[in-house]
Amino acid sequence: MGTKILTSSGHGFENECREIHDSWGRLNHLVPSMAGWSKLEKQQIRKTYRAMYGEDMAALLQKMQSQNGSKVCAALYRWMVDTHERDAIVAREAFGQGDVNYRALVEIFVGRKSSHVSLIKQAYYARFRRHLDQEIINLEPPHPYQKILVALATSHKAHQEDVSQHIAKCDARRLYEAGEGSSRGAIEEAVVLEILSKRSIPQMKLTLSSYKHIYGHEFTKSLKNAKYMEFEDALKVVMKCMCTPPYLLRKGTVCGY
Rank of each mutant, 00 (worst) to 15 (best):
M1L: 02
I89H: 09
H84C: 14
G256I: 05
A74P: 03
E55I: 03
T3E: 08
L27P: 09
C73E: 10
N225Y: 08
H166S: 05
I45L: 05
Q97K: 01
S164P: 09
F95Q: 10
E194L: 02
E41R: 05
R127I: 00
E140V: 06
Q203K: 05
E85G: 12
H156I: 03
P142M: 06
Q62T: 13
L248W: 04
D133Y: 02
E232W: 00
L30S: 14
E19T: 03
E180C: 05
Y145Q: 02
A234I: 04
A172W: 00
T83C: 13
W79K: 11
G252R: 08
I5P: 03
E16P: 00
I167T: 12
V150H: 11
D133M: 05
E41H: 00
I45S: 01
S70I: 06
K63E: 09
D56N: 10
D87N: 15
R78D: 13
Q67I: 06
V106S: 13
A94H: 01
H213W: 03
V106A: 11
H11K: 01
H213A: 08
W24A: 02
L119Q: 11
V150K: 13
G185E: 12
A58I: 04
D82P: 06
T83K: 15
A91W: 00
Y257M: 11
S183Y: 08
F128T: 05
Y125N: 10
Q134M: 06
K169W: 01
K39S: 13
Q62G: 15
E177N: 07
F95A: 08
S9C: 01
V110Q: 14
Q160A: 15
Q134R: 08
S197V: 03
D56M: 04
I136L: 08
G25L: 04
P246T: 10
N225A: 15
R112S: 14
K47G: 01
S66G: 14
N28R: 14
K240N: 12
M52D: 07
K71L: 02
K147V: 06
R78G: 05
G179S: 12
K251Q: 14
R250H: 02
A51T: 11
L119V: 08
M239P: 07
C73H: 10
R46S: 05
Y102R: 10
G12T: 00
E85K: 13
L6E: 02
A94R: 06
C243T: 11
A178D: 08
Y145V: 05
G179I: 07
A74V: 06
K224D: 12
K251P: 10
K224G: 09
Y53K: 10
S23R: 07
Y215D: 07
S155V: 05
Y49N: 06
S183A: 11
R173Y: 00
R46H: 01
E16T: 02
M52C: 05
N28I: 01
A59E: 12
R78H: 09
I20N: 09
R86K: 15
H159T: 09
Y176M: 09
F128I: 04
I167S: 12
M80D: 11
Q165G: 09
S66N: 14
H143V: 04
K240G: 07
Q62A: 15
K198M: 07
N101H: 12
S209N: 15
A104L: 09
G36N: 00
H131I: 13
A58F: 07
A226E: 15
T207R: 01
